[in-house]
């Protein structure tokens, strides 16, 4: 049974990847969004020396808005192009959510690597505790993707998709964002990974809770 769901999830993931590489429905707009955001940050900062506290906030603003812009489209695309019924008729809801989560994870990690590289290149952002920084960014990303995917599924059924996403996502993502911004800021300033333990536990717990809730809720969202 679990094997069947995993097989179906991989099929959906591969289909989404193939579909995205052919249509560039999300990739092109996200690349432009990232380039514009990073350029605006560069112009806004000018030649001034900026502290890591502020730069960490700017980094997460770029990550949050880019992710929101991209991840919300996975389900919206299925609804707008009227393909969701064929998918619903052919697969279990758990497999659909897992496939979409996998696709969003790959998209989000690729996007965030790009943002990090560009951000470090154009600002004076330096990270003193690299391992702690990467751990918090990676776990934060898992939480962000998990929450964004279920919110995307919910808003895909609504008429005003564009406006509903930020309204729903902000309160849900707020605990994650506060924690991950604080943790990455501390790591960038050189605080040891063992001292980030509290933040890491919160991030892991948030990710587990939101993922479990997503799997419990999704069937009702998808099959209604």
């Amino acid at each position: 049974m679990t094997g069947d769901i995993l097989n179906s999830s991989m099929l959906i993931f591969k289909k989404d990847l193939k579909s995205e590489l052919r249509t560039r429905y999300v990739i092109n707009s996200l690349l432009m969004f990232v380039l514009v955001t990073i350029s605006v940050i560069r112009f806004a900062l000018g030649d001034e020396k900026t502290e890591n506290e502020l730069l960490t906030g700017l980094l997460w603003i770029s990550i949050f808005f880019s992710t929101s812009n991209g991840l919300s489209r996975t389900f919206v695309k299925e609804e707008e192009r009227e393909t969701s019924i064929a998918l619903k008729l052919s697969s279990d809801s758990t497999a659909v959510l897992t496939g979409k989560l996998l696709f969003n994870l790959v998209l989000s990690f690729a996007l965030n690597i790009l943002i990090l590289i560009l951000f470090i290149l154009i600002t004076d952002y330096s990270v003193k505790n690299v391992s702690g920084f990467l751990i918090t960014v990676i776990i934060g990303n898992f939480g962000l993707v998990s929450a964004s995917t279920i919110i995307a599924a919910i808003i895909s059924k609504a008429n005003s998709k564009g406006t509903l996403y930020p309204v729903l996502s902000f309160p849900v993502l707020l605990p994650l964002l506060i924690t991950v911004i604080n943790a990455t800021k501390l790591a960038s300033l050189g605080v040891g990974t063992e001292k980030l333990y509290g933040e890491i536990i919160i991030l892991v717990s948030y990710t587990i809770v939101i993922t479990v809730v997503s799997y419990m809720l999704f069937r009702f969202v998808w099959e209604d």
């Binding site: 069947d4 097989n7 099929l11 289909k15 192009r81 969701s84 064929a86 998918l87």
Partner: peptide
Amino acid sequence: FNLYDELTGFENLDFFYKLKSNG
């Protein structure tokens, strides 16, 4: 409902056939 425009006819049916066979 529609099938996937960006996939070929074969890819569409192959994808749905495998999905309906539980992957």
